[in-house]
Amino acid sequence: MGSGHGTELNLTLKVWRQKNSKASGSFETHQLTGISTDMSFLEMFDVLNEKLISEGKEAIAFDHDCREGICGMCSMYINGRPHGPKQGVTTCQLHMRSFKNGDTIVVEPWRSAAFPVIKDLAVDRSAFDRIIASGGYVSVNTGNAQDANNILIPKTDADEAFGAAACIGCGACVAACKNSSAMLFVSAKVSQLALLPQGQVERKERVKKMVAQMDEEGFGNCTNTGACEAECPKGISIENIARMNRELMSANIK
């Protein structure tokens, strides 16, 4: 903060405004002056909202929470890409130095039938919660906890499970996918548990239930374009999708 190295930008912002899930929205254009390149993208929105409030207008609704890239709440589709032009970052980790003076920035909400717009840029991602609730849990022993060292886990499995568990459930995969498919999210959650001994009890049932819930929520199908993997702020691999396909096939056979 206050490094004094940043320069200032003048920007044109085209933002999607929508009253509620039933209203049809439209773009609203705002001119911004003196935006510091040190600001995060969300801080730029804070400045805009302060300005709107001082003018007696309604602030733009957008999701945000931790603002350090770990909660998965921020969710803007910026210039045609989820979380903006940088790879491996969430919108809160995107800084205004990624833009040039005089740029026009188009900001839209995640677009998916399964993610209805609540207001402006905020969408309802509870479909993800229902998918997790349908099978993303493990059975545990009651009584005293056993010694953790009794359960042997190969390092490679632990690494792969950890890689899948890095998913923050932001929904960028759905937003990026031309089919609005949730396969990367669901496969990350399925993989994380299928790879570890604690997840074996429900292994077959889990993949069936989670895929069924995913379909019921109205997400599209995976056509392996790889857009999800490229846009995922946590770098989740589509190897997980292949694993989920494998898990589902073997669960359906048995």
């Binding site: 589709y77 188009v106 677009r111 039938a113 790889g226 857009a227 490229a230």
Partner: peptide, 15 residues
Amino acid sequence: ARPVGYAMVDGAANS
């Protein structure tokens, strides 16, 4: 699965 499309899509960036 996507009844309302995006106004701007940068598909070349990711696929």
